[in-house]
């Protein structure tokens, strides 16, 4: 398998995981908020927006009445978002820029 293709697939895999995680968190949040009869999150698409804004640490305060379960879920989403969303995506993209330089440095060292 070609390397470039491999990295593309890897990127897709991370986005895929994020997507699935987003979906399940949104469903969970909807469940918590529905139990609380909240007016802020009335459907799963609303919950999607909330979870997305949390995961990418935007955090507009337009949705703020969150149940206790919802709060704990948002904490988890925030931390996972930091780790998978930012770290893995940045790691995969960053490696593309740094690869050539690092390789050249290693080769220069081993040749001498």
């Amino acid at each position: 398998m070609k390397n470039s293709k491999k990295y593309f697939l890897r990127f897709i895999a991370v986005i895929f995981f994020l997507g699935v995680f987003l979906f399940f968190s949104a469903c969970g949040l909807y469940l918590f908020e529905r139990a609380e009869q909240s007016k802020m999150i009335e459907s799963i698409p609303d919950a999607f927006v909330y979870v997305f804004l949390t995961m990418f640490t935007v955090g507009y305060s337009d949705v703020s009445s969150i149940s206790i379960g919802g709060k704990y879920l948002s904490m988890i989403v925030a931390i996972i978002g930091h780790l998978i969303g930012l770290a893995c995506m940045i790691g995969i993209i960053l490696s593309t820029f740094r690869l050539g330089k690092v390789l050249r440095r290693i080769k220069a060292k081993t040749n001498i």
Binding site: L83, A87, L94
Partner: peptide, 11 residues
């Protein structure tokens, strides 16, 4: 820092 660690390890 954990994000940075993950990013560097992937590189």
């Amino acid at each position: 820092i954990p994000s940075g660690l993950l990013a560097s390890v992937l590189t």
